[in-house]
């Protein structure tokens, strides 16, 4: 039995917000249960995906795990530490990457940002060198170390940010949307690096993402949060099965035609002028469907849409009994 490294027991976060009612000046106070009794445990060395629609409570959870926010109720431990009480002590043991907020120094070479991290965290010289070398190699940062951060591309900056979060050997790494806005090559490189860090260093990784491929390629375990509650906790296969994930073939025809019919394994879900959408199971191959359509219809263009994580979750929530839909 592996010991739980991250432990949540009935954790709650209640916000009081003032909302303006109508156009009048009066404001009503109301409470929002951003996180509404969440319990889970993550053993040391696991890599988990933490996903959910916008506003579901993902970042609130991450903020409680890192000690930024104090929970309103429940018990929470990371490495045996209560994050909100001992935030600075915990900070030495965790690494955090906020997807869209760089912690690098805009006008200075990348190297300088790392030197600051070393001194802020008091990393021993030898340790620092070894870690930096490893990050530089795996994230391909060698040519970028002397470049001012403002001149880096988004993908390069994200790689730089991830390296900065790992120089002090954190036991757990939190990543908030680490691949958002990156090109395909950068995404692949970031994922490969995270796998490496997780398997070689045994770093526990918690990541939130909107990209289903991130989850598919990185995490064996996925947690889905909706309206502040944990609605799924298990393997990715289970998520697909529960949600019956589908891919979509978007077909542009020469002219407006009645909905495409008679393609085995696919059904037409939407028609808009000459454009039609065909859904088919994510596991099935697209090739026979494409050829079946091409044989019988005058095609102009084709494109394939991978299942979006929102869709998977939405379908999952719809299929669950008595659960509210994730789509507002």
């Amino acid at each position: 039995m592996t010991e739980a490294f991250i432990e949540l027991d009935g954790v709650e976060k209640v916000f009081e917000v003032r909302r303006r009612s109508g156009r009048r000046l009066r404001r009503e106070r109301c409470t929002v249960r951003a996180v509404d009794g969440i319990s889970f445990a993550v053993p040391r060395g696991e890599m988990v995906g933490y996903i959910g629609p916008n506003g579901a409570g993902k970042s609130t959870t991450i903020k409680m795990l890192t000690g930024i926010l104090t929970p309103s109720g429940g018990r929470l431990r990371v490495a045996g530490i209560d994050p909100s009480r001992e935030r600075t002590r915990l900070a030495r043991r965790i690494g955090v990457v906020f997807g869209q907020r760089t912690t690098l120094w805009w006008d200075l070479p990348l190297r300088d940002s790392y030197a600051l991290v070393r001194r802020i965290y008091g990393i021993p010289e030898a340790r620092y060198r070894a870690n930096l070398e490893r990050c530089v190699e795996l994230l391909d940062l060698g040519a970028l170390l002397g470049v001012p951060v403002r001149q880096l591309s988004l993908g390069q900056r994200m790689r730089g940010d991830i390296a900065a979060a790992l120089l002090h050997d954190p036991e757990v790494l939190y990543l908030d949307e680490p691949t958002i806005g990156l090109d395909v090559v950068s995404k692949a490189r970031v994922r490969r690096f995270l796998r490496e860090v997780n398997s070689e260093q045994g770093t526990t990784v918690v990541l939130t993402t909107h990209d289903l491929t991130d989850i598919e390629q990185l995490c064996r375990r996925v947690m889905v949060i909706d309206h502040g509650r944990l609605v799924y906790d298990g393997g990715l296969d289970g998520l697909h099965a529960v949600g019956e994930s589908e891919r979509t073939l978007v077909v542009d025809l020469e002219r407006e035609l009645p909905p495409i019919a008679g393609v085995p394994g696919a059904r037409t879900v939407r028609v808009d002028g000459p454009r039609q959408w065909l859904a088919f199971p994510a596991a099935a191959s697209a090739a026979p469907i494409v050829s079946a359509v091409a044989d019988r219809y005058p095609l102009v263009d084709l494109s394939l849409r991978e299942p979006a994580i929102e869709d998977v979750i939405a379908r999952m929530l719809e299929s669950g009994e008595g659960r509210r839909s994730a789509v507002p």
Partner: peptide
């Protein structure tokens, strides 16, 4: 703009 959070996860006041 939410950038205060990046300061709160560092081990200094």
């Amino acid at each position: 703009d939410g950038t205060l959070d990046t300061l709160l996860v560092r081990p200094v006041p």
